[in-house]
Design a protein around this nucleic acid. Sequence first.
DNA 1: CTATTATGTATAAGAATCTTATGTATATTT
DNA 2: AAATATACATAAGATTCTTATACATAATAG
Lengths: 120, 120
Amino acid sequence: MSRKYKKMKNSQLYKGSLNTIIMKLLEENGKMYGYEITQKVKAITQGELNITEGALYPALHKLEAEGLLDVEIEKVDNRMRKYYKLTETGQKENVNRLSELEDFIRNMQSLVNPSPKLEF
Amino acid sequence: MSRKYKKMKNSQLYKGSLNTIIMKLLEENGKMYGYEITQKVKAITQGELNITEGALYPALHKLEAEGLLDVEIEKVDNRMRKYYKLTETGQKENVNRLSELEDFIRNMQSLVNPSPKLEF
DNA sequence: CTATTATGTATAAGAATCTTATGTATATTT
DNA sequence: AAATATACATAAGATTCTTATACATAATAG
């Protein structure tokens, strides 16, 4: 019964980007555990994106089930940690997803920031 | 019984961005009808993002119900068109959403393209 | 010292958004 | 004459997320 009310309400825009974020962070850091990922994301985005456990853990389990992540359990200070890292398949898939993300960002910028109409 | 198979499977990344896209296009073009929006988006993204009717029409109806869009029916060539435009509230809300989108893009770039670690 | 907060994982119920599949109808092109 | 393009609409199911719990230990605050 800890877990104080944390009203986060991330922008809907982040919906669908969690898997890509997880995989990119794992690529970058080698291995990470769930709680560490939430803290890292919060730090990088200066508190703007707060990944909830209810979203994170199912996502990690799914990526593992799909063979994109490997898990390795450690016990630190008597507390359990599940370290995740990309499998080889995961590394290949990560390349695709980052490429998709670049396309996505480029397309969103085209939509929102159209090249100005030329005046004659 | 037309409707040829159109397998689109947009990247999950676009999930959550439809409302923002709609409102931005309406701000830019004054008024648009549904089908026009799908074609415009396809053109701008060079075919990479294909908005489905099953997503678009419910989204338009919801934005209208929320008071962000106004609708105006016209008949062109004996075919119905429902033109949508931003209400005043919608214009204000659009500013917020575009600002959220900028933050989102910035954050995603930070996550994916971190500033290189300095070496000493 | 005891209550809260931080660290750490997990799942279930429900909301929100989207894909896929239809349905209806007219205009245009093949 | 048939297929495609234009134009709207909704329902079923999938996916992803929020919110609310649950359990457990370590560290900090009052």
